[in-house]
Computed example of a mutant assay.
Amino acid sequence: MRKLLFTSLAAAGALALPAAAQAQDTTKADITIGASVGMHDLGVDLGDFDADDGEFDDFDIDDTAEIYGVFAAADVPLGESLFAGVEGNFHFGSGPIESEYGVAGRLGFRTEGGSKIYARGGYQWVDLDLGNLTGVDEDFLDENDIDVMDVGGDYLVGVGVEVPVSSVVLRANVDTIAFDTLRGTVGVGIKF
């Protein structure tokens, strides 16, 4: 139900964005393309699992990964300081994350100096590497045809800030996927 609600809200925002942009005669899209790095804590919870009672004494969950990749964002003004936009990202990961990618809508305000402070919401997909996540030997996984696990996707919500320095933009974001993970990224981009 939550997925349907967030997907509906994202679709409504996507439909409203072009109408708002068209209403502005002097609207110029603010486009930024760049690179980002960060940490993604998957928040793996073993619940009541007790390694001492089972045969998994050496079961080691490594649920934090460094991520590095690219992003692209486009924003349009909705007035003096308010803006709305959309952004996409693709990241490779280390450790338990093979890759992740997603799209999000942005809504925020621009300060007099040009900095942007925004909230964002969208959808993020994460592909996991089970060997790195669990510490299980890769030969065992290969013998049993267990490979990268596509976790699928879920809604993403977060906040961010972008600070312009000439035509370069420095940015930082903190996000969560379905309130199960914590993801922080920093990046540098070029404005077009």
Rank of each mutant, 00 (worst) to 15 (best):
D142R: 13
M39D: 01
D154A: 12
V174G: 05
R106H: 06
P96A: 02
W125Q: 14
E87D: 11
I67Q: 04
Y68G: 10
G135F: 00
G152S: 15
A11L: 14
R171M: 13
G88M: 07
P96T: 04
T181K: 12
G43Y: 13
Q24C: 01
L130T: 09
V151H: 01
F49G: 06
D48R: 13
L78H: 00
G105Q: 06
L17F: 09
G114Q: 06
V151M: 07
A29Y: 13
D50G: 12
G122K: 07
G189A: 08
T27I: 03
D127P: 02
E80P: 02
G108N: 14
D30C: 01
S99N: 05
D145Y: 15
W125E: 08
S166Q: 06
K191F: 03
M1K: 06
D137V: 09
L82N: 08
P18G: 12
N132W: 07
D129A: 10
V163S: 15
G158T: 08
G184H: 00
P164D: 05
G152D: 07
D58M: 06
D154R: 07
L17Y: 00
G189C: 02
T181C: 14
P18E: 01
E66W: 07
L107R: 01
I31D: 00
G47T: 12
V44L: 13
L17K: 01
G114N: 13
G105C: 09
L141P: 13
T64E: 10
G102V: 03
A12W: 08
A65V: 14
P96R: 14
V188R: 04
G13Q: 02
A16P: 00
D145P: 03
L156P: 01
P77Y: 10
V174E: 02
V86I: 12
E112H: 00
A119Y: 07
D142A: 15
G93K: 00
V157I: 15
D137H: 11
A73C: 07
V76F: 03
R183Q: 03
